[in-house]
Every structure is written in structure tokens, then in C-alpha cells.
């Protein structure tokens, strides 16, 4: 068993080709670092426990002792128990600091990218597809993403059905997409490449194949791609979009325009404290714009029913 454990450690550290430990962006890098810090720290704990167990089992086996040996009655000791508590507490404090810092890091614009306006992409799931809307570029894709490298990406996630989880392991960890609110995931790609993405949260029959492709390309190439889409793709219409939402699998599709125009994201449905804040008048300017969308959405909702 310990053989197996060490095999795992070797695999983890030796060939770094496991997706999560082969990061291609700052957020995934942070997470891979946290994972490795925790593995080494925990390895220390495991070695201490294994060593103590081995020592006790070898030294205190009945077969190693005389027949008349009577084990003593030992109540426990304040010193020993302080050590049992003290060392773990120190370890947990250390890991807590790492955890809190890294959580704030992955929940904000990636370090080094703060000075530029992030590219906002709406990623919404439906059974069992992903719809990617680029409001800035005014285009939409299904089941594949084009992203520019070296630019902060802000994914706005929501779902047209069950809860799903947007995950591109090499760019960063996942976040849920839900039908009644929009969540935000901050990512960025350092290097060009093709990355694997999927819905990680079980969502029914077609879940296993609920995947998508991510193409990270240099910014100039990204602009070329956008231009090409605008020239060649057909516009997305409300009817066409309703067809796309039907349960099933689709290949990769490309459209001009976005579905957000006629079917906006659920930005302010009971978004908990967030929306309350906004009603209290804490909103900044561009949230305000979306607020108006919200009212439109409500009326279009009624229209659908």
C-alpha cells in the first residue's frame, strides 16, 4: 500500500503531464502550486503516522515480549497531548494562510493582468452543450471557445437547465453554472494551445459527452478569427436558439450576434447579497446597464410562458 502511495507521488512529481498539474494559465498555476504545497505538507504527516505505527507494531508485538509482561496503565500525558494538538494546529494555520490567499487570488483578475480590460464571455450550458457568447465581438459559438492569450478572461456562467460546472483544467478550476444566477470565473491563458474543457457536474443522460474545446491563440490571430466568423457565420435567431436548447448533443457551431440580445442572462434574479447591494444603491455604472436588461428579461420571460 505504501508502495502504491509512493508510486502516486512519483507519478505526480515525475511526469507532470496530468492536466491539473500541467497549467497553462496563472489561475491553474496558483492551484497547481497549492496542490503541491499541500501534498508535501501532508506527506510529512503521513510519514510521521506511518513511522509511529511501524515502530509500535514492531516493538510492542506480544511475540516480542515475555509471557509475564503486564502492560502498564497510562492515563495520557499533557505534554504528549499538547504536541498532538500543537503540531497539527501549526500545520493547519500554515495551510489556512495558503488557502485563503490563493482563494482570493483565483477569485480576482489574474495577477499581472489587472491593467487591461478583461474579455467577457458568457458561457451557458444547456442539456448537453455549451453556448459561448462574446458580447464585445457580438458573436456566439457552441461547444468551442476561441480565446486570446495574455488577456484576462471573465467567464459569466449560467445554465439553461440543471446545475453544471464549467471546467478547463489547464486554465483553472471549475465553477457552477446555475439557472437562476450568474457566477463569474476569472481565467487567462499564458500560452497558445488547444485545451480540454467540460461540464464537471453531473447533469443527466448526456453528461459524459458534455465537453468543449478551448483554442488559445495570440491576440492578433484571435482578431482574425473574429473577423472570419463575422464574414462567414449566419446570425443566431430566437427560433434557432430555441432549437439549440433542445436536449441532445451538437457539434461545433458558430453564429454572429449573441442569444443574450433576446434571452439575457439571469444576472439579478435572487443573486443573494449581490443583488441586495445593488438595490441599496451600491451599484456601479456598468452594473446599472445590466439592471435594465433584467427588466427586459422578465418581460420576455412572460412572453415565453
Amino acid at each position: 500500500m505504501s508502495f502504491l502511495f509512493f508510486t502516486i507521488i512519483t507519478v505526480l512529481t515525475g511526469c507532470g503531464n496530468l492536466l491539473v498539474l500541467d497549467p497553462k494559465g496563472p489561475q491553474a498555476q496558483t492551484q497547481a502550486d497549492v496542490i503541491m504545497i499541500s501534498i508535501w505538507t501532508m506527506l510529512f504527516v503521513v510519514i510521521v503516522v506511518f513511522a509511529l505505527l511501524a515502530y509500535m507494531l514492531i516493538k510492542y508485538r506480544a511475540s516480542k515480549q515475555s509471557d509475564d509482561y503486564e502492560p502498564p496503565h497510562i492515563e495520557g500525558s499533557k505534554v504528549m497531548e499538547s504536541i498532538f494538538v500543537g503540531i497539527p494546529v501549526i500545520i493547519i494555520i500554515f495551510l489556512s494562510i495558503v488557502s485563503v490567499k490563493s482563494n482570493y487570488a483565483v477569485e480576482s483578475t489574474p495577477e499581472g493582468y489587472e491593467d487591461q480590460e478583461p474579455l467577457v464571455i458568457y458561457a451557458s450550458s444547456s442539456n448537453w452543450k455549451w453556448h459561448f457568447s462574446y458580447p464585445e465581438q457580438d458573436i456566439e459559438t457552441v461547444n468551442y471557445l476561441y480565446i486570446p492569450t495574455d488577456r484576462a478572461l471573465e467567464f459569466k456562467l449560467y445554465s439553461h437547465g440543471p446545475i453544471t460546472s464549467f471546467w478547463v483544467p489547464q486554465l483553472g478550476g471549475q465553477k457552477y453554472a446555475m439557472a437562476d444566477m450568474v457566477t463569474t470565473l476569472h481565467l487567462a491563458a499564458d500560452v497558445p494551445g488547444e485545451f480540454f474543457g467540460r461540464n464537471a457536474n453531473f447533469s443527466g443522460k448526456g453528461f459524459a459527452h458534455n465537453t468543449f474545446n478551448v483554442n488559445a491563440v495570440p491576440p492578433a490571430e484571435f482578431e482574425e478569427w473574429v473577423d472570419e466568423v463575422k464574414e462567414t457565420a449566419s446570425p443566431i435567431t430566437e427560433d434557432r436558439f430555441q432549437e439549440l436548447l433542445e436536449p441532445g448533443h451538437l457539434g461545433q457551431l458558430t453564429f454572429t450576434g449573441t442569444h443574450l440580445e433576446f434571452s439575457p442572462a439571469p444576472e439579478h434574479n435572487h443573486g443573494g447579497s449581490q443583488s441586495h447591494d445593488k438595490h441599496d444603491g451600491h451599484e456601479n455604472h456598468d452594473h446599472h446597464e445590466k439592471h435594465e436588461d433584467h427588466e427586459e428579461e422578465e418581460s420576455s420571460d412572460h412572453h415565453h410562458h
Binding site: 492551484q31 499541500s38 488557502s99 490563493s102 483565483v106 483553472g172 478550476g173 464537471a200 457536474n201
Partner: peptide, 12 residues
């Protein structure tokens, strides 16, 4: 339990 790393372990 390390939440940032959990984003990578969750659901896996």
C-alpha cells in the same frame, strides 16, 4: 479543504 485547489478536485 483548500478551497482554491478544490476548484480543481471538485466533481472529479
Amino acid at each position: 479543504g483548500m478551497s482554491a485547489a478544490d476548484y480543481q478536485y471538485h466533481n472529479t
